[in-house]
Simulated scan of single mutants.
Amino acid sequence: MGSLLAKQAWRLLHNKTSLFYKVFKARFFPNITILEATNSRMGSYAWKSILIGRDIIQRGSRWRVGNGEKINIWQHRWLPIKHPPHQPICPIKDFEHSLVSSLIDPFTRQWQTELVDGLFVEEDAEIIKRISLSQVATEDALFWPFTSNGIYSYKSGYRFLKEEAEQPKTNQPPPLRDKQLWKNIWSMRVAQKIKNFVWRACRNALPIKKELVRRTIIADPICDRCRTAIEDPLHALWSCSEVDIVWADQSLWDFRWSTDFENIKMLVSWLIEEGKQLELFAYTAWSVWNQRNQVRVRALATVPHQIPSVSRTLLHEFHSRTLTSDSHFHRRTHYLQQRWVPPPANFVKINFDVRSS
């Protein structure tokens, strides 16, 4: 039944000349699209049923980037990758309602590479920059990826719902402890891409070999560095013997040899609870990950024993820039908040402007 209802929702999305579309739009979503429409007590049984079909379309369809004005960066599925998630993971504060159009230069019709590199982790940034953009601004298009022509069909919808029902339920609300962990991660005084990286590592969302094997992308889960253990996030970033030199500073990471962790999430939680150097850990782990990726593609990579000093430098530079920016902001805010006060008795106050001749 759901696949049949989704067909009607698809018609309301794409067949805008039909009487069916005109009647339902005028009655239920006159000033918005069906994707933004909500249920109401006045809605008919037919309308409520179509909304069920609409939700199926939203879960399965993808966006093809045109001008980017309809696509929310964080909420819509628009990354051209085979396996979910098909959108960047987790909205960054102050950017959670941004559209893809904000990433595109309107004059050159090219991605704003510096902005993309700054907002996203390296893997997502590279995927985004590989998306081809038309030289002429066109509308974004919603397509159904389970058919060859991108048009929804009953049969493909049924297959999608069947596969969806067979997948393990992973969208359960996180426990309160997890919510506090995420809050601490996103409150770190580090670059946004570093926060995103740590968050993804804790969620097992990095393209690590163990995860790639699970997705049947590769067959060998063994770490390429030490060739002795399965590569999961904890091993790749922390416990691999080949990164011992990175975490050799006993004054900072002495617990590495005395405390065991089941996964990277437990490690980050422990750092937060013990008040350890979480921000330095984040930059160091990010540098280890980058070095690992550069070595895999035979690119010029940082030598492992240099990673600690490079990480400290990156953290110090970020804090310096942040302090300078905050200082300018507070001075400007103080200036704007100054209020006009009347002059004392027997005095006249005159406001004037100086213009150069």
Rank of each mutant, 00 (worst) to 15 (best):
G53V: 04
Q75C: 13
A125K: 06
F28H: 01
P88Y: 07
L19K: 15
D94N: 14
H83K: 13
L103N: 06
Y21M: 02
V23T: 13
G60S: 10
T17D: 14
L119Q: 05
E126A: 15
D124C: 08
G60D: 10
Q110P: 00
K93G: 08
I34R: 01
S40A: 09
R41Y: 13
K25Y: 02
I50D: 03
N72D: 12
R59N: 15
V65D: 09
Q112I: 15
I71M: 07
T17K: 14
M42C: 00
Q87S: 15
T17P: 00
K22I: 06
T38N: 12
I57N: 03
S40V: 04
E122I: 12
D94R: 14
K25F: 02
D117P: 06
Y45C: 04
F29M: 00
H86K: 14
P84F: 09
D124K: 05
F95C: 06
W63R: 03
N67R: 12
Q110R: 10
V100L: 10
L115A: 12
W78K: 05
E96V: 03
W63I: 02
S44R: 03
K22H: 11
K70A: 13
S44E: 03
S44W: 04
R109H: 09
G66A: 12
V65M: 09
P84V: 07
I71G: 03
H86P: 08
I57V: 13
T38S: 08
R27S: 11
R27D: 03
P84K: 13
W78T: 03
S102I: 10
G66P: 10
V116G: 09
G53W: 03
E123P: 00
P85M: 06
E126Y: 13
L119A: 08
I73H: 06
S49T: 08
S102F: 11
P30G: 04
V23H: 14
F29T: 00
S98P: 00
I71E: 07
K22S: 12
G68P: 10
E126C: 13
N39Q: 10
M42A: 08
P106G: 07
S44N: 00
I104L: 04
G66I: 09
D94T: 15
P88T: 02
K70Q: 15
I104P: 05
R59C: 14
I57M: 05
W63F: 12
C90N: 15
Y45M: 00
K48M: 11
K25V: 02
I128H: 10
V100P: 09
E123A: 13
I104R: 04
S49C: 05
I92G: 00
N31H: 01
R77P: 01
I92N: 05
N15V: 14
T38P: 02
R109T: 00
H83Y: 09
W74P: 05
L103Y: 05
E36C: 02
I89P: 01
H14E: 04
N39T: 08
I81P: 09
F95E: 00
R64S: 15
P80C: 05
E126R: 15
K82M: 11
N31Y: 01
L119Y: 04
P85C: 10
D105K: 06
A46E: 13
N72F: 03
K48D: 12
K70L: 11
P80R: 06
P106W: 06
G118F: 11
P91G: 14
G60L: 08
V121G: 13
F24I: 01
E122D: 15
H76M: 01
N72W: 01
I56L: 15
P88Q: 05
G60V: 06
